[in-house]
Each structure stands twice: as structure tokens, then as C-alpha cells.
């Protein structure tokens, strides 16, 4: 399994101008392999810079990014190979579609990799499956689709490259609940069935609580906390301190716990809360 490790990575925006500013400063972090990792933090905390560093769209001002132990900038000419291994889906990716058909658009990445036609076809099918794109959509023009469908086509275009790391910058921004669940559910299925590693940048604590195994919390250009999702959300005060939230349900059970109700400290979802409250009610003879 592949690994990505950042060693003392800094990134300076607009270097050499009066506007220069550190977007990231001296970051050391390993991106967990084989799981879905949530990357959370305020706008301007450095999340978007970080994901663009991971696949070599930006080059660190200082420090190294190691993919499987090798500096990705060791040979500048091979940076394209890094981008195939670390697939990045940018924010609002539906605006990058350009081909005549959905099929051709999804095939753009694999074609750039220099793959043979049958292999490309197979990958397009695989990616379409995970993104819930049905056969009849494949031959339509991407510009005819609804917003949510376009978004899924764009994500499929990156999944089709079979990256070892799939990175998604706010994949569900602006979508309604069903659109959001389709995309995040598809990503989860993709992770389970391919065993790849996934990083999701998100502003929704409810979403990361449901879908992410571990979290990296960014604040002011530095890694503020990292660990299992459950562990990170079990200390809400720490997150409140940097202006972040916990899922509403976690906040509620935490408040109840602090007022003496015997509930566990690591509740992430409504169903966990329900089970905990019901078992408490049974113990107290209220049910």
C-alpha cells in the first residue's frame, strides 16, 4: 500500500511580492493509507493548498513530500506520474468537463496515462459504476446533465485513473442531501471495494462523522490535530477553540453527559445516540 508523508513542508504564496504569506508552515504529517481521511479546518487554514501539494500541482517552498518514500519533486519530469497516483478532484469539478460524451470525458485521464483502448474502456465502466453513472448517460453530452450528475462524471474522470490516493476537495458542496449521499456513498463503496486511500476535504462535520475513519484538523497553516474521527470528536472543546464544530448530535450527547447522564463520550451518529439513550432508559427502568 502506498504512503504519503510530508516532511517540514512550508508553502509561501506570492513569494517575493509585498503580498507574500505562508499558506502552510512546517507541516509534518502522514496521510493515513487504506482509509477515508477527512481534512477539516476553516477557509484559509491551508486545506486547499495542502491537497494541491499532495499531487504536485503546487511545489513546496520548503520541505519534502514523500510518495512511497521518494520525494515527488526528485525528477520534475515525472510529476505527471505522481498526479496519476494521487488523483485530485478539485472544488466544483463539474466545470472541467469538455468532451462530446461522458464516456470520452471520463476516459481523458486514462488516455493521458497512455493506456490501451480495452483497458480504458474497462476503467471507464468501473469509474461509472462507483459514481452511479448509468450506461445510457455514458453516450450523452456532459453538458446535458444535471448539476449533480456532472459532478459525478467529473469524479469518475479521476477515479478512472485508479489513483492510489483519491483526494476530493469538498465533493458535496452545493448539492442537496440526496446528491450528497450519492456521491459520498459512492466514494465509500469505492474505498471498500478497491482498498484505495481517500482524502475528503469538507466543511460538514456531520458528513465527516459518518464517512471518515480518521481526521486531520488544520488551523492557520498548521496541523492542529490528527487521529481517529471518534477520538477527535470526543474532545469538542478543542475544536470549538479553533472555531470548528462537532456534529450536532455529538454536541448534544456531550452536553447531556456533562450534566450527569451516563452516555458514552464518543457518539458520532444519530443511530449511535439513539442506541445509547435507549439502553440508558432501559437501565433506569424508563422503557
Amino acid at each position: 500500500m502506498s504512503t504519503i508523508t510530508l516532511q517540514n513542508v512550508s508553502y509561501l504564496y506570492s513569494a517575493g511580492t509585498p503580498f507574500e504569506k505562508y499558506a502552510l508552515k512546517d507541516i509534518n504529517v502522514t496521510i493515513p493509507s487504506g482509509r477515508i481521511t477527512g481534512l477539516i479546518g476553516h477557509t484559509g487554514s491551508g486545506k486547499s493548498t495542502l491537497v494541491q501539494l499532495l499531487n504536485g500541482l503546487l511545489r513546496p517552498t520548503e520541505g519534502k513530500i514523500l510518495l512511497d518514500g521518494r520525494d515527488i519533486w526528485e525528477d520534475e519530469k515525472k510529476i505527471r506520474d505522481v498526479r496519476f497516483k494521487v488523483g485530485l478532484v478539485m472544488q466544483y469539478p463539474e466545470y472541467q468537463l469538455f468532451e462530446e460524451t461522458v464516456r470520452k470525458d471520463v476516459a481523458f485521464g486514462p488516455k493521458n496515462m497512455g493506456l490501451e483502448a480495452p483497458e480504458i474502456e474497462e476503467r471507464v465502466k468501473m469509474a461509472a459504476f462507483f459514481c452511479g453513472i448509468t450506461e445510457d448517460l455514458l453516450d450523452k453530452s456532459p453538458f446535458e446533465l444535471s448539476g449533480g450528475q456532472k459532478r459525478r462524471v467529473a469524479i469518475a474522470g479521476v477515479i478512472a485513473m485508479r489513483p492510489e490516493f483519491l483526494i476530493l476537495d469538498e465533493p458535496s458542496a452545493g448539492l442537496d442531501p440526496v446528491g450528497r449521499d450519492t456521491i459520498l456513498g459512492g466514494i465509500k463503496k469505492y474505498r471498500e471495494e478497491t482498498g484505495g486511500s481517500v482524502v475528503i476535504v469538507s466543511h460538514s462535520m456531520e458528513d465527516v462523522a459518518v464517512y471518515c475513519d480518521s481526521l486531520i484538523v488544520m488551523n492557520k497553516g498548521a496541523v492542529y490535530a490528527e487521529g481517529d474521527t471518534r477520538e477527535i470528536f470526543s474532545t469538542p472543546e478543542k475544536l470549538y477553540g479553533v472555531g470548528l464544530d462537532v456534529p450536532q448530535i455529538t454536541g448534544v450527547t456531550e452536553a447531556l453527559r456533562s450534566k450527569g447522564l451516563g452516555l458514552p463520550s464518543d457518539i458520532l451518529t444519530v443511530s449511535e445516540a439513539r442506541d445509547a439513550i435507549l439502553s440508558l432508559a432501559k437501565r433506569r427502568g424508563l422503557l
Binding site: E206, P247, Q248, I249, G251, V252, A255, L256, K259, V270, S271, A273, R274, I277, L278, A281, L286, L287
Partner: peptide
């Protein structure tokens, strides 16, 4: 989420008030 929790709990038979949409009131 708080409304969903109350909906689930009431379905399981707990005697709780209706129309909770606010976390504070739910607590």
C-alpha cells in the same frame, strides 16, 4: 439531527415531546 433523534426515540417508545428542532431544547 436532534429532530431525527427524537423521531427515532419516540418510535422506540420513549415518551418525549413533539416538535423539537433546536439542540438546546432537545437537551
Amino acid at each position: 439531527q436532534i429532530t431525527e433523534l427524537f423521531y427515532e426515540l419516540k418510535k422506540a417508545g420513549l415518551d418525549l415531546p413533539d416538535r423539537i428542532i433546536d439542540a438546546g431544547k432537545g437537551e
